[in-house]
Write a protein that binds this DNA or RNA. Structure first.
Length: 291
DNA sequence: AAAGCTATCAACCGCGCTAAT
DNA sequence: TATTAGCGCGGTTGATAGCTT
C-alpha cells in the first residue's frame, strides 16, 4: 500500500513564493499560531502544500531568524557539533539560535566542507585525510560518518545515545579491558589518543541534552506566554482556531533517563561552558507537561 | 556583449517516526 | 494490533546571481 500524497498536487503552486503568498502565511500564523500544516493552506487561502508552507515559515519567514553571514564562532561551533552529531542538521541548528537546519546544511556543503578540506581534514570523519586510510578500516566503506560501535550487552538506549554523542569511551574501555588479549601497544596508544580526543570534545562543548525550564519561575513562564510580543511558534504549537492556553514545562534530563548521568556525556550539574556565548536557556529543550 | 561555468540557497521529494483511531 | 494522518528530517534539485573567458 502506497503512501497517500501530502496534498492535491494538481491544485497547488510550486516554486518560488510570491510576496503576497508570504504575507498571507505571515498574517495567518500571527493570528493563529503555527502548526496543523495540512489544513493551514486552505485556511490561509494559499494554493500551497502544507509542507511547503511549513518550510517557507521555518526557513525564511520566522521572525526570530538571524540574517547575514555566519561568524567565525558559528563556523567553529558547527564544525564541533558536526564532529559529534554527524549530519543531524536539526540538532545542530537547535544549538545555533536564529539559524535553520536547511541554512546550516547549505552552509556546510558550500563553505565548511571546503574549509575542512583546506585544513587537510575529512569533512565526514573530521580526521586528517591521510590518517583516514589507516584509521577507517572499521568504518563503513561509503566514507560517511562512522557508525557508533555496538558493544555486547549494551542496552538499546546506550547504543542510541552513542549514535548521538559519539562513542562513549567509558563503556568501551570496560569492554576492552575485559578482553585485552591481542591488542598491541600501538593499538593501545591509538585508543588512548582517541579517548583523549573525545574527552577534549566533551570539555569544549556543552552537550547538555537535558530538558528544562529557562531561568524563570512557572509564573513568569506562564505570563510570558501571554505577552503580546511572544511568538506563538515557540509556545503554542498547533493552536489553530483555538485560544492559546499556558503550557507548563518540566525539566527532564535525557542523560539520567538513559543511564548516563554523571558520565562524560552528562553535565547537568556543571556550569555553562564559556565556549557557548549565548544564554543557557537557548540550548535547552522543553516539553509540555500533561495538563 | 555573450556564452559558459561555478557557487549559492530556496524549495522539493521521499522516507521514517509517532500519535490517533 | 494494524492502519492512517501528520509532521519533521536529510538528501537532492533547480533557479539564479556572479564570475571568468
Amino acid at each position: 500500500m502506497g503512501r497517500s500524497p501530502c496534498c492535491e498536487k494538481a491544485h497547488t503552486n510550486k516554486g518560488a513564493w510570491t510576496k503576497e503568498e508570504d504575507q498571507r502565511l505571515i498574517n495567518y500564523i500571527r493570528a493563529h499560531g503555527e502548526g496543523c500544516w495540512r489544513s493551514l493552506p486552505k485556511a490561509a487561502g494559499l494554493l500551497r502544500c502544507g509542507k511547503s508552507c511549513r518550510l517557507r515559515w521555518i526557513n525564511y519567514l520566522r521572525p526570530d531568524l538571524k540574517r547575514g553571514n555566519f561568524t567565525e564562532e558559528e563556523d567553529e561551533l558547527i564544525i564541533k557539533l558536526h564532529s559529534l552529531l554527524g549530519n543531524k542538521w536539526s540538532l545542530i541548528a537547535g544549538r545555533l539560535p536564529g539559524r535553520t537546519d536547511n541554512e546550516i546544511k547549505n552552509y556546510w556543503n558550500t563553505h565548511i566542507k571546503r574549509k575542512l578540506l583546506s585544513r587537510g581534514l575529512d569533512p565526514q570523519t573530521h580526521r586528517p585525510i591521510n590518517a583516514n586510510t589507516k584509521n577507517n578500516n572499521n568504518n563503513n566503506s561509503s566514507g560517511s560518518y562512522p557508525e557508533p560501535e555496538i558493544i555486547n550487552g549494551s542496552s538499546s538506549s546506550q547504543v542510541k545515545i552513542e549514535s548521538i554523542i559519539g562513542t562513549d569511551y567509558s563503556i568501551k574501555e570496560a569492554a576492552t579491558n575485559s578482553n585485552s588479549t591481542g591488542t598491541t601497544e600501538e593499538d593501545q596508544t591509538q585508543h588512548q589518543q582517541q579517548k583523549l580526543d573525545h574527552q577534549q570534545k566533551f570539555t569544549e562543548l556543552n552537550l547538555d541534552l537535558s530538558i528544562s525550564l529557562p531561568f524563570q519561575s512557572h509564573q513568569e513562564q506562564v505570563s510570558a506566554n501571554y505577552t503580546a510580543e511572544s511568538k506563538p511558534s515557540q509556545i503554542f504549537p498547533c493552536q489553530v482556531h483555538s485560544t492559546p492556553k499556558p503550557i507548563i514545562t518540566q525539566s527532564v534530563c535525557l542523560c539520567y533517563h538513559l543511564g548516563f548521568q554523571r558520565s562524560e556525556a552528562c553535565n547537568c550539574n556543571q556550569a555553562m561552558n564559556p565556549m557557548m556565548s549565548i544564554s543557557n536557556d537557548l540550548y535547552r529543550y522543553y516539553r509540555p507537561l500533561d495538563p
